[in-house]
Each structure stands twice: as C-alpha cells, then as structure tokens.
Design a protein around this nucleic acid. Structure first.
Lengths: 152, 152
DNA sequence: TGGCTTTATCCCACTATTTCCCACTTTCCT
DNA sequence: AGGAAAGTGGGAAATAGTGGGATAAAGCCA
C-alpha cells in the first residue's frame, strides 16, 4: 500500500506535471486526487495525499511556539504546504513558489517514498545522489540512534 | 480546516493587501471577514480570525503579571492588536503602525500557519529562510524532544 | 459654529492571471 | 498494424488583482 519507484518526467510551460498513471487510481481512492505539496530541507518537494498530510500538520502545529527551531519548521513546512488537485488529465499544477524553491524547470524526477512522493529537479537529483553514495561509502556521518540499529 | 500555503502579494499605495481568494470564503464563514492583526517577536505580522484571537488574548491576559517576559508579551501582542475588516474586494487595510513595525512596503509574503496567517516583508522573509537552511545545515542539534522524534 | 481641508472608505473599471477544456501526438498493448 | 490509453500543448473564458477616482467622514481653523 506504499508508493515506490522512480520516474523521469517533464513539466510543461505552465508548470504542470503528469502523475504516472499507475499511481492515479490509488490517489483517487485515498484522497480523491487531492494532495498537499510542500518543501523539504534538501530543496526538493514533498507530495502527500491530503489525509496523510493532515496527520503531519497536526504534529507540527502542536509544537511549542516559543522554540525557535520549531517556529522555523512550521513556517517552512506549513507555510509552503499547498493543496493541489489532480486535473482531468492526471496532472498537478505546481505553484510557482514551490517550483522556484526546488529549482524546477523542465526535467524533474518523481520518487515514491512510502506515504509520500518526492519531486526533484533532475540535475539536483543526480548531484545529490552522487553525494549520498559518497558519504555512505566513507561512513563520515554520525548516525543518530534510530539509524544505528536500522537493519535493511 | 487549516490555513496553509504561501503567496507573494503587493500592498497598494494605501497600504491595502488583497487576501488570496482561496481563503476568502473560509474567512467569511469563520469570522464574517473580521480579523485581528498584531505583531510577532520575529518582526512579522499575525492575522487571526476574530474568534481565534479572543482565545489567544484570554491566555495572554491570564499570564502572571509579575513576570517580565509575560508583561512584554502582553504589551506587544495585545497592544498592537487591531481589528480589521476585509472589504468588498477581499482586501484588508493594514494600519500604518503595523506596517511600520514589520517593515512592510510594496512587496510582502503571506503564509498560512494553521489557525493564523503571517505577513512578512519580502526581504525579511527571504533572509529568514536562509537562516533556516543555515541552521539545518549546521545541525544545531539542541532540538527539543518533540522535534527529534518528528517523522515527516 | 460653519466652512474648508485632509483623511479614510467604498466602489468601479481595467489588466493580468488562472483554470478549464479540447485536440493532437506518442507510446504501449493486443 | 490498429486501437486505446497516456502525455503534451495551447487557447478561451472566467476570475482574481490592482489602481484610481468619488463620496463620505472627521478634524481644524477662522
């Protein structure tokens, strides 16, 4: 019941992106084609089915307002979160500000990530992938506890 | 049932700001177009639907009067709070003092934040965003527990 | 106190943007 | 190879944004 897989796709001149057809039926079931798109710290976009997003948003709004980190997170995640509807051709219109944030122009990459999707600019994706492979190979990250005990 | 999303918008010469149309119906329902605008510690403005504000104001009024922080908060938030009405074109007139406080001139950014909105001067917003990216990159790791275990 | 000046609010009209829909091209499956 | 489904592009109508002007209100000075 999970979104997986990677797709190369193109945005048209109006910033619309065609969802791969294999996801459409599922999205229709889960959320009637209503998704929420927001930003990620790695400068890609996240696409959540509406109900899934609401769970996350709930967690976010209940963070303590006095904490600076929390406020920044709220501002970015909730601030950029935009509800979008999949049109009759199976496309979503990506709002200009979100496209800008992720540096998206023509060529993009869509990645299934369980409950959500990620959208990357193709170049950014290629680059980030290289970096990631490097850093895992070198083992140069201090892993938090949850990662240390992760078994793949 | 929550306000979200980001919009670039412009103030006209009279200091009026057009609310994005997608929020108007909701605002009409909730508060008949009556909102309360006040200031935030980060030098942006906060916009609350009237009933929502009254809850907040109540909390503020009941803070311990001897505490210095509390008194400052009260003075700022309650002091600057101004009731404004959305006009027939869907615009709110931002009072001069509030515009001044947030350093607003022509270009502004409106972000949905659940029960309220925030209004930023465009430059201030851009800057604040850079700060966020910085702080994530540097891994300022004194995150509160609530943030540590947040799964998006 | 009356009239004049200044400020604020309301309303109308133009421009830009968005959204919706239709049609063509391409690809994949039978 | 033919048909169907998916991807792509573009155009037109509706809607939202913006600016300006007119009317009403309020303050001020004579």
């Amino acid at each position: 019941m999970s979104f997986r897989g990677i797709n190369n796709l193109t945005l048209d001149t109006k910033g619309r992106m065609a969802m791969p057809s294999r996801y459409r039926e599922r999205l229709q079931e889960i959320c009637g084609g209503r998704v929420v798109i927001t930003v990620d710290q790695d400068h890609c976009l996240l696409v959540y089915p509406l109900p899934e997003w609401e769970i996350i948003e709930n967690k976010l709004v209940n963070l303590p307002s006095l904490n600076k980190q929390a406020r920044l997170l709220q501002r970015l995640l909730i601030g950029y979160a935009t509800e979008c509807e999949i049109d009759s051709q199976g496309r979503v219109l990506l709002p200009p500000m979100l496209r800008e944030f992720a540096g998206l122009n023509k060529k993009a990459v869509l990645i299934g990530q369980g409950k959500k999707f990620e959208i990357w600019d193709e170049d950014a994706w290629t680059e980030s992938q290289g970096e990631w492979v490097e850093s895992v190979k070198n083992g140069d990250d201090d892993l938090p506890a949850a990662l240390e005990e992760l078994s793949l």
